[in-house]
């Protein structure tokens, strides 16, 4: 056997396993693809497609947290999405400094509520995260448009619609989780 093929006892495994990291990447990619498809299919910035985009993103986040139930997965998802948006979709990194603590806070919240195996804890965590992320987006819009409050109206409407969609997504997430259980893909 060549030296490279020496068989050693199993070492301690790192905190993040490839399957969790791959799942995070796969769901982040799916969320982005779904968002772009809805925006295109909806014919641009119409209110319904805005809400729907957020609803689908929330459903997917709920499913991800139940499939990769580990502390920090929400934060990792946020970071991956932000960098990916910058690289491929022309998103801005500006929100990341705000989203990062929001992700950590909600990861802590889910753990405090009993962990990622509890569907309602995940729903609360995602609901709070959506609220915080929208608040951060509003705050940024205010900073960017502070010279003219009138310009702040449209982003505020968009973000509000987005949050309505996120709330709808929480209900959709609960329903979809039941379906995934029925399909034998989630045990939570």
């Amino acid at each position: 056997m060549p030296p490279s093929a020496t068989l050693n006892p199993a070492p301690r495994r790192p905190y993040w396993q490839p399957r969790e990291l791959i799942l995070v990447g796969a769901f982040a990619a799916l969320t982005k693809v779904a968002g772009v498809v809805i925006a295109l299919a909806g014919g641009g910035m119409n209110p319904l497609s805005l809400a729907l985009k957020n609803a689908v993103a929330t459903v997917l986040l709920v499913v991800l947290l139940l499939k990769a139930p580990k502390f920090g997965v929400l934060t990792l998802y946020v970071v991956s999405q932000s960098i990916f948006s910058l690289l491929l979709l022309g998103g801005s990194l500006m929100l990341l400094p705000g989203l990062l603590p929001a992700g950590i806070l909600c990861d802590l919240l889910i753990r405090g509520l009993g962990g990622y195996q509890k569907v309602w804890a995940v729903l609360v965590g995602v609901g709070v995260f959506d609220l915080l992320s929208k608040a951060i987006a509003l705050g940024f819009s205010f900073l960017a448009f502070r010279e003219d409050p009138r310009l702040f109206i449209m982003p505020a409407i968009f973000i509000g619609l987005g949050y309505l969609g996120s709330l709808l997504g929480l209900a959709g997430g609960l329903k979809f989780v039941k379906e995934l259980r029925h399909a034998g893909l989630i045990r939570a």
């Binding site: 791959i22 995070v24 990447g25 799916l30 982005k32 990792l76 990916f84």
Partner: peptide
């Protein structure tokens, strides 16, 4: 670090397949 690198690589790798 791998925990940031890997999800990003997977995202870029999977987008064409998802489409």
């Amino acid at each position: 670090p791998l925990f940031i690198h890997l999800p990003l690589v997977v995202m870029i790798r999977l987008v064409p397949s998802l489409i």
